[in-house]
Every structure is written in C-alpha cells, then in structure tokens.
Design a protein around this nucleic acid. Sequence first.
DNA 1: TCCTAAAAATAACATACGTTATATAACCCC
DNA 2: GGGGTTATATAACGTATGTTATTTTTAGGA
Lengths: 193, 193
Amino acid sequence: MGPKVKFTKEQIIDAAFEIAQTEGLDAITMRKIAEKMNSSVAPIYVNFKNVDELNEALIARIIGISRQLLTEESSGNPFSDMGKASLRFAMEYSVIFRDLVAKNGRYMQGYDEKMMPALFDEMQKDPELKGFTIDELRTILLKMRIFQLGLSMMAANGLLPEEYNKQAIMDILSSAADDVIVSAKLRRGFENE
Amino acid sequence: MGPKVKFTKEQIIDAAFEIAQTEGLDAITMRKIAEKMNSSVAPIYVNFKNVDELNEALIARIIGISRQLLTEESSGNPFSDMGKASLRFAMEYSVIFRDLVAKNGRYMQGYDEKMMPALFDEMQKDPELKGFTIDELRTILLKMRIFQLGLSMMAANGLLPEEYNKQAIMDILSSAADDVIVSAKLRRGFENE
DNA sequence: TCCTAAAAATAACATACGTTATATAACCCC
DNA sequence: GGGGTTATATAACGTATGTTATTTTTAGGA
C-alpha cells in the first residue's frame, strides 16, 4: 500500500464546481483546481483519466444537485414543484445555469425529454385540466416550459426588477401558468358555442 | 503612401462574425480570422489595437444586425415587431444569441433598458390596454418579455417540437401575449365586482 | 528611377493549457 | 527496519493563444 489519500474524487469535483460557480464552466482548468485544493495536478490525474472524464463527473454532480432541489419541493403538484426547483437552481447557481443553457442544449434536451412524459401524465390526471384535447394539453405544457425557461434565464441574468424577491418570482410563475390555463379554457368555451 | 489596402475593418469583422456564428464567440482567435481571410494576423493589428477592440466592434456589428431586423418588422404594433425581431435573431444567429445571453446579461441588460421605455409608452397608448394601472401594465410587459426570452432560447437551442416552423413559433408568441392580456382583464373584472 | 511610407507576411516571445515523465515522500507488509 | 507500492510534487513537453519585432512587398512622390 501507499500513503494516505489526501484528495478524493469528491474534493476535486467540489473544487471544480466552485470554480464553475464563480467563473463559469469554461474557466475550469486542471491547475486552478489544484490551486484551490493546495495540491498539484497529480491527484487529479490519479482520480480522472483526463479532463473529459472530470467534466462528465462534474455534470453528474450538477444533475444530482438539480435532482436534490426537485425532491426538496414536494407540494404535491409536480408542475409547481418542477418550476420552483428549476427556478431555485437558476437563482442559486446562476453562472452554471447560464453556461448549461448556453452550451448547447445537450444537458437540457436530455433533462427535458426525461421530465416531459411524467409531467404530461400528471396533466391528464389533473381535474382542473379535464376536457382538454391532447393537442391543447401539449400547447399548455409547452407554454409553461417556455415561460419557466425565460423566467429562470431572467433571474440568472439579473434582468428582473430589483423588487422581485424569491417569493415574487415564484408567484409570477404561478400567475403565468394560470394565465395559460384560463385562456385555454376560454378558447375551448368559444369553440363549443 | 504605401500599398493598397487588401483587408478592411469590415472584412475582418465579417470573418469574426462568421466564426462566431458557426463556432461561438469564444472560438474567435486572431489566427482563425486571418486564415478565413487568407491573410496573416498583421492586417488585424493594423485595424484594431487588440482583441478587446475587435470584440467591441463585433458586438457593435451584432447590435446593428439586431436593429436592422427590428426595422424590417414594422407591422405597426411595436410589441409584435420587437418579439418577431428578437425571435428572428435567435433563430438566424442561434449560436451567437446563446452566447450573448449566456455571457452575462451585459448586452441584454443595456438592450432591454433601452427598449423598455418605448414599449411602455406604446402600451399606455394602446386602446386594448385601456384601464389598466401602471403596475398591471408593468406586470403584463414583464410576462411578455419573459415569454419572449424563453421562446427565443428554446428556438436557439432546438428545444421546440420539430413540427414548429417559423410561423408556428411566431403564432405561439402572439397566443401567449393574448393569454397574458386576457387574464389580466379577467382579474381586473373580478376586482371591480 | 529611386526612395520612402505603409501594408502585409513571417517569425518570434510570453503565457496558459492539457498531459506526461520523473522525482519525492508516505504507508504497509515482511 | 527495509523494500516495494502508491499518492503527491515537480518539471517538462507539445500545442494554442495574444502580441510584437522584424522582414518583405507594394504603391506613390521626388
């Protein structure tokens, strides 16, 4: 056996995450990680084959945090939960969120495609959404996702009015969701006249 | 006098823009620009002091294009115009749009702050928005901006359903705007009962 | 025609990156 | 306690970047 391990995978990813959170994902370098740990780059290469493997692990960590935030929101309404969790992530890890959305949507694409069916199922069970066609439900869901992304992006970029605190931001998300559903009901009503 | 100028500021910015559009803003390097022009880096340093000055010129060019798109949309309704112009930019220059939004919002912040007062004035003149309080108008405008940003981001990232063509994307923007206004009117109605 | 300017090309410098080769140090087993 | 294994440190290599020094080329004026 050799000497005691001083730097674990976890610590390395922690350091990388910290850099990503303050300077952006592209600012991560092996030397910066080492510096933040007060080590050399050697421990990094013992734990990861190369920078790509480290990035994969970092993304996995980020996804984990995102999932953690989602589990912390369990009001019963999966829409509200998902929206709030996404918003919290965008606000608490704004730099990473911006980079993730910008990169390309590989991460988001996968995430969305995983979440969509579950949300869609939930919509079809929701009594408030009774009577809508599949297409109408699809449009409602799409509008909500669009608004959620826009709001998260605004929050992450500090583009919202200063007086909007966390609660106000959550409220406007709910309000917009109501707008979409109410309007959809009105359209449905007109069609049936 | 010296020899004829073979590479102008315009050509250099053109080359930089082309790289930004295909590989992203961060992928721009002096040597790549030179390669695209079949020149060396010398002409670049004759025309620009350094890479920062070149970037400023590139941003100015991008803002110019954005403005150009806006002037091309003149339906009379400044809301619709601005939404369509923003969407066209996001779709036609998706890589640059993503990078701009991601960077930080410095560019967006300035752009927004310049546009907001004009839009707000326009809202107060709009007969369809008669009777709303200042705060209500502010909320309506904010919701529209949020939706517009979300939709632009989705379009730029290819996250919209495949069957959504340009027209369908424009339509959903209008539809969401209607949703917000109609719902605001309903709320107003209830309050006055 | 020749000389001078300015533009462009070439090549070098300093820096930062990922990665790897080599050296050092710490721990366990015998 | 000595030896081998392994984590860590150090230093170097190759590459890419921005920038600059130097050289070459070109056009117009004397």
